[in-house]
């Protein structure tokens, strides 16, 4: 089953290069409905204002990290089911387990490939659909 290419995706990363790369990759995969934020603090009010179907976020960011953002999302009654895919350079087993505990839906370690991004998004959407 194909993914809904109309879904609105928020890309959160403090490095503009990385945001640009992810947004371009998403475009290549057919997702044109994207927005960007440079850290959790900027992302949070955007998410609260509604309309987002998917979050692709970095972990290590100033002001509000990806983990803090994820925790806020999971604690919010309107947003707690929002799919959250983490793309990060952090790769310690404990970190991955901690993120899973916090409720992350997918975890990609940088550097990554376009196909990894697609596979992870596909798996997340499929899983959410079954639930």
């Amino acid at each position: 089953m194909a993914l809904n290419r109309e879904m609105k995706i928020l890309v959160v990363d403090d490095f503009s290069t990385m945001r640009r790369i992810v947004i371009n990759l998403l475009k290549e995969l057919g997702f044109n409905n994207t927005a960007e934020a440079d850290d959790g603090e900027t992302a949070w009010p955007m998410l609260q204002s509604g309309g987002y179907d998917f979050v692709v976020s970095d972990w290590n960011m100033p002001n509000m990290t990806g983990l803090d953002l994820l925790e806020k999302i999971r604690a919010d009654k309107d947003l707690n089911c929002l799919p959250f895919l983490l793309i990060t350079a952090e790769a310690k087993r404990n970190q991955i387990l901690g993120m899973a505990e916090a409720g992350v839906d997918g975890y990609i370690v940088k550097p990554f490939s376009a196909s990894t991004l697609y596979e992870q998004m596909y798996q997340i959407i499929e899983r959410k659909r079954v639930q």
């Binding site: 990363d13 290069t17 790369i21 371009n24 990759l25 290549e28 940088k110 990554f112 490939s113 376009a114």
Partner: peptide
């Protein structure tokens, strides 16, 4: 060509890693 250009683009992610 499409896939090679995407590879070039993706290779730029080094900047995020070295930057950190």
């Amino acid at each position: 060509l499409n896939s090679e250009l995407t590879n070039i683009m993706l290779a730029q992610s080094f900047q995020d890693l070295t930057g950190q």
